[in-house]
Design a protein around this nucleic acid. Structure first.
Length: 539
RNA sequence: GGCGGGGUAGCUCAGUUGGUCAGAGCAGCGGCUUCAUAAGCCGCGUGUCGCCGGUUCAAAUCCGGCCCCCGCUACCA
């Protein structure tokens, strides 16, 4: 029975379209999902949008649309971008969906029944733009206005419900101790441990008198507020609180039989890894496990707080945070349509260490794309295939039943290291290894043996050289499969390799089966009679 | 203010327990080559390893002080 692996990403606010920063997270999560699938795991990859906020309903009103309709439209736009980026999500939850509402209400009721929610009141400076209370300090420092929205907050006092987070301090600390890998990277872990050790305040989890949102079941005057709603998407999406084949009101409905339900929840939960931005680690690493304790469910296995992508202008000025007000937002679609999904994915995975921050500039993008993808990898495929096509009519006779001689040294060790890096989400290191250990030696091998010369003097001698050169292409295709979704398949599919592409695993790198038939270039050729360039160089 | 992480070639960064550790990639320069996407290969870096002092036969690598940068967090207010 395959090991289950449940991966999530943060759910996004749909009041603006996704930018490359949000895409960075999805790509990193997708690489992990694809890697785990390759390694035989039964993966469930969840993404979604966070829709129950006042901003959403406000924006919808502005556009004279119903909130739900607006959310659905935005969700489609998000999914369109994610699909274009080849993000292989299995499910996309919108928190306005019935399954989320039902599960949320079950959850909060459960926590209430367990005695971890109490009624109180809260008074503070409230900013509508933030949908939240600001501390006096924040407001004062910004000169009497909200630092984010530059409007004066209003004093507001209202009854509300609190979640007794403070009660879970000891339990959280011992949980961190028992699960040293719960928070990654380690620097984030240290921050959270320090935070939880110092102070945990009970958190306000409701809002009064709002239409859009999820009603508090034990007091419908209130709606559930932000985190107590948003975090729950991870469990409601896989069926928490939903009975098999029942509508949201609990009435049996056969047409819903295939929806996630409690049995699915038991299958998938706990999540193996939540991918989130480093700015929301405290909610995922302190509040969320405490909520799980309070409701009597297991907390997630791990949380990975990735870094941010900053925009670097090509004029060498300092990198900027991505922000609409700075007008530096780059739409993922812009990169995808100009170049390719694989180019986008490669740049971010290679250039931006996932645990830390990275930068994007068009100049840098072009440099990395050209040198790594175009000149190094793409060109290797071109030169090898062209030699076989032009000199052997696409077939290397006598290679059936043969094994190529390895070019790279310590292949098994390289694979082991790449695997370790993939598992640790150190994608940049994994990719660097592949280039240095597999692709560089291949180009060097070609140069040293000069098959283009041999072909004119001694074809039989050229044959094994070309056969051997197919091997690093096969290996690179397999190792790169989680990252270069399309081009890895193109590379692999350029030859009649014995194993089916859908089934290859990292372990197959070292145990290539003997070539069943003579090695043949089976790629579709372009007008020149050559394999089309994989990554056309950017001028 | 406290805690944590950093400051290494033009750029991005590797450097495990102190002793070929002064490195890689990119960019740049020179040469070779022409199968290939004007692609490839080879060669070239005297860099105060942030600053100062200390320990040691030996420190980028340990200790102390200082200066910057980043993250989390606090307080004054």
């Amino acid at each position: 029975m395959p090991k289950k692996f449940f991966i999530t990403t943060a759910i996004d606010y749909p009041n603006s379209r996704p930018h490359i920063g949000t895409a960075f997270e999805k790509i990193g999560a997708d690489v992990q999902a694809r890697y785990r699938r390759m390694e035989g795991c039964d993966v469930h990859f969840l993404m979604g949008n966070d829709e129950n906020t006042i901003k959403v309903s406000r924006k919808a009103t502005e556009l004279k649309r119903a909130p739900k309709e607006y959310c659905d439209d935005m969700a489609n736009q998000f999914k369109e971008v994610w699909r274009a980026l080849d993000i292989s999500f299995d499910d996309f939850i919108q928190t306005s969906e019935p399954r989320h509402h039902v599960g949320c209400q079950k959850f909060i009721q459960k926590v209430f029944d367990n005695g971890h929610i109490y009624k109180g009141h809260y008074e503070g400076l409230y900013c509508d733009g933030c949908e939240g209370f600001k501390t006096e300090k924040e407001v004062k420092e910004a000169g009497g206005v909200c630092p984010d929205h530059r409007v004066a907050p209003v004093l507001r006092k209202e009854p509300c419900y609190f979640f007794a987070l403070s009660k879970f301090q000891d339990k959280l600390l011992s949980f961190y101790e028992q699960h040293p890998d719960f928070i990654q990277p380690e620097s984030r872990r240290n921050e959270i441990v320090t935070l939880v050790k110092s102070e945990l305040r009970d958190v306000n989890i409701t809002r009064l008198g709002q239409e859009w949102g999820i009603k508090v079941p034990f007091d419908p005057e209130f709606t559930i507020y932000v985190w107590f709603d948003a975090l729950l998407n991870y469990i409601t999406a896989v069926g928490y609180g939903t009975l098999a084949g029942c509508a949201s009101d609990g009435e049996p409905n056969p047409s819903l039989a295939r929806l996630a339900n409690e049995a699915d929840f038991a299958t998938w939960w706990p999540a193996d890894i939540h991918f989130i931005g480093k700015d929301i680690t405290r909610f995922h690493c302190a509040l969320w496990p405490a909520m799980c304790f309070a409701a009597g469910i297991e907390p997630p296995r791990s949380v990975f707080g990735h870094g941010f992508v900053y925009i670097k202008k090509d004029d060498a000025s300092a990198a900027e945070k991505i922000s609409k007000s700075l007008g530096n937002v780059i739409e993922p679609m812009e990169i995808i349509t100009k170049f390719s999904s694989d180019g986008f994915r490669y740049y971010f995975m290679r250039e931006c260490p996932f645990p830390g921050d990275g930068e994007f500039s068009w100049e840098r993008f072009a440099a990395v794309y050209n040198s790594d993808l175009g000149k190094n990898l793409g060109n290797l495929l071109s030169r090898v295939t062209t030699l076989i096509i032009n000199n052997f009519d696409s077939v290397l006779p006598g290679t059936a039943g043969q094994m190529p001689t390895p070019i790279a040294a310590d292949l098994a060790e390289t694979v082991r290291q790449v695997q370790a890096h993939m598992q640790a989400c150190q994608y940049n290191s994994a990719l660097e290894k592949i280039w240095r250990q597999i692709l560089d030696p291949a180009n060097q091998y070609a140069e040293k043996n000069e098959p283009w010369k041999l072909v004119k003097t001694d074809k039989d001698a050229a044959k094994p050289i070309l056969f051997n050169l197919s091997e690093p292409l096969r290996i690179a295709a397999i190792l790169l499969k989680p990252v270069l979704v399309r081009s890895s398949a193109t590379i692999y599919g350029s030859f009649n390799f014995t194993q089916p592409w859908e089934k290859v695993r990292y372990a197959d790198v070292c145990t290539r089966p003997t070539q069943a038939e003579d090695l043949r270039v089976i790629a579709t050729l372009d007008a020149r009679g050559k394999v089309p360039p994989l990554f056309p160089v950017i001028k």
